[in-house]
Design a binder for these strands. Structure first.
Lengths: 234, 234
DNA sequence: GATTTAATTCGTAAACTGACGACTTATATT
DNA sequence: AATATAAGTCGTCAGTTTACGAATTAAATC
């Protein structure tokens, strides 16, 4: 049972394929450029076929010999590490936090802007697939940057919501974050549904995001009250 | 790059290990029993190490020869198919729908009961891992039963919520389901976080479910209104 | 206890996979 | 145009991996 990669490695006749481009496409590239190209293709490739997909199939997808990959990356593990940095960590933008805290805009507007950007930049098919493959730990390459970044986003959202609605928050940090996770989880799961399960495609993204945000904003005070109450119990 | 399975296949000394149980544990079993045992272990095994994990490692985990697996399952793909039926489809209980529609109980109570059961029976580590591995399509073994079942749950929840709160729903079926997905997605993502990312472990499950449900119930009317409004626009 | 039945293991074929030494050849420089 | 540099490919090794024919051996039957 090979991974999905066998869909790729186009069946048979490697000799003919080789003979059909005898001295044509041999586009020799500068190292930096070539490495960037390999990395870009690799992130697409592993997102599609999983972290266990083979270097041979990747090389084929890049139109180069398998050996060339090892000129630019010492091992497959090292390549995966760079894929992780480039395709998982890099999409997060620091500006988002600043904009979320910009109280000159109404809170719900800020939320909409944020999740619009977040959905487009982070919650892509490629990002989700790589992140899930990594989390399922075919290789434990995912450190906890990501969780740390997301938690900071959650804290910001919850604090801003409380400020906007003049609501008192529970004192416990974890409980506070769980309030934020309600919205963030709903949106993340929407993206998973859409990009992985190929579902929820009939209604426009913007409408669904607006729906989720509206529910969160409306239910926020009730959540905070419930959280404070159960905090008293403990 | 092997999958996580290499954590398993306990390093070295196979000969010694074999000699150390020379005629002891050779528990010959009736076919039906043996097959059930293999299937049960296989679902745990593939949930942990991914659908690309090896039959040899599985056999070792079962304490039998690798060849024996092929006596009960014609191929690895067939085995995976049975794992899917047993571990992904089977946990869904038809009673849940009945209980959700039992209007002798308050709606929020029904929701709590349902998500309590659903979280315990479906949203387990094992189920989530298998479902995600399948969805990521190392093998396309996931048909659409699951989506169909979940959509029926969503429809029920949304209709019951509208009835409980005397709220008018949008006419579009897809839009209606998206309202239900807000809660269902939030809860599902909570389970993913907890079982896959090993996060959100400090607050008790019940509290978090109650929080999400409270937000949904409180925000429901606002969502329905928003959905009806944007329906008018289209 | 001898005989049969079938559950279980052994051993291996054929294909696959990460890694790399040695060779080829495009391109820039003189 | 000759030369040097290094980008890129060939071929292969060692270890895996699915799958299966053939040999073992525990237990049921008489």
């Amino acid at each position: 049972m090979r991974a999905r990669s066998d869909l790729l490695s186009g069946a048979g006749r490697p000799s003919e394929a080789r003979r059909s481009r005898p001295k044509q496409a041999v586009p020799r590239m500068a190292p930096a450029q070539r490495k960037a190209m390999l990395l870009a293709r690799a992130s697409d490739f592993f997102a599609e076929y999983g972290l266990t997909a083979q270097t041979r199939a990747l090389a084929e997808a890049c139109g180069v010999a398998q050996r060339l990959i090892y000129r630019y990356f010492p091992s497959k593990a090292a390549l995966l590490q760079e894929v992780y940095e480039e395709a998982i960590v890099a999409p997060f933008k620091a500006v988002w936090l600043v904009r979320l805290r910009d109280r000159s805009q109404p809170f719900e507007t800020r939320l909409q802007e944020f999740y619009h950007n977040y959905y487009d930049a982070v919650l892509t098919r490629k990002w989700l697939r790589l992140f899930l493959y990594a989390s399922l730990a075919e290789a434990r390459m995912a450190p906890d940057y990501i969780q740390a970044i997301i938690v900071e986003i959650l804290e910001t959202i919850v604090v801003e919501a409380a400020h906007a609605q003049q609501v008192e928050l529970p004192s416990g940090r974890d409980l506070r974050n769980e309030i934020g996770w309600m919205l963030h989880g709903a949106v993340s799961h929407f993206a998973i549904r859409r990009h992985l399960y190929e579902a929820s495609r009939r209604v426009e993204v913007e409408r669904i995001l607006a729906l989720h945000i509206r529910c969160f904003v409306t239910g926020f005070a009730a959540m905070a009250a419930e959280a404070r109450a159960c905090e008293g119990t403990t």
